[in-house]
Design a protein around this nucleic acid. Structure first.
Lengths: 148, 148
DNA sequence: CCGGATCCGTTTCGATACTG
DNA sequence: CAGTATCGAAACGGATCCGG
């Protein structure tokens, strides 16, 4: 039987400012599952983040290397935030959170399309991989697009 | 290719007060990996939670059905907080967080025993299952012990 | 008009002292 | 030991302003 991890200056601390913050979590959700990229898009989320908080969290995420900020090639006034590899690697965490919600939270269960929750049950790994790939692909495409 | 989950009153909201809060996350870590059960034990954690916050978060966790509060059979003045099934189901989430940390955060990498991080790489599912089983077993034993 | 920065009133949080 | 009460500090929401 595995011993508890115990001791050590405590794992998880690294994740506190990430998962210990409501707004950061919401932005990551938007990045991964809603495929949002722009400041304006994040602002539209129903939770109603305010401008200062959003700017602050985006800066934090950039500082921590989870996202990168690029000019928007469609509109030179805008910017685009893309998940880095490190950010993309959070997909499994988010998916596990959602799986938990689907199992134990009625509201979450209802909020998520049936085919998705079925997929989560039958093939979570596949779902995770596809989501990651899709995020990575979008990023690559965008960067190529931007270079041209 | 999987479509993004998109739309719906947004998944994840259910998890905000859980994962959107630093202290809650730390308590859950203690419950799962440090096998802590008592108020005093949580207080000892190096992050230094204060009494009111701890009391508040424990109450929240009880209200949300993640833990249950029982009298301590060793010491009638004390209490014991045990993860419910719903709480135990968070193990995969925590493990994914740690896996992410081990990959992308130097501090986390160093904080976690080598054999654990090796295990996480080679057999995360097994590790998760063992951890869950172990949590469940401890709970059952405690409840039996309490009844006697 | 878009992506912020700044200021400010309010709420929430958390450290400390204190209590049953 | 397991909390509550208090009170200062920090975070937040909202409005406003500003540079491109």
């Amino acid at each position: 039987m595995t011993e508890p991890i115990r001791r050590s200056p405590c794992p998880i601390n690294f994740a506190l400012e990430l998962f210990g913050d409501k707004w950061t979590l919401l932005i990551i959700r938007d990045l991964i599952f809603m495929r949002k990229k722009g400041y304006g898009e994040f602002m539209e989320s129903p939770e109603g983040i305010s401008t200062n908080i959003l700017a602050d969290r985006l800066r934090q995420l950039v500082d921590n290397g989870l996202i990168e900020k690029y000019p928007d090639h469609n509109d030179k006034k805008k910017f685009v935030y893309l998940l880095t590899e490190k950010g993309e690697a959070l997909v499994p965490v988010l998916v596990e959170i959602i799986r938990w919600g689907v199992q134990y939270d009625t509201q979450a269960k209802n909020a998520i399309p049936i085919e998705v929750s079925a997929r989560l049950k039958s093939d979570a790994m596949g779902f995770i991989e596809e989501t990651r790939k899709s995020v990575r692909k979008e990023r690559k495409q965008y960067l190529k697009w931007l270079a041209s």
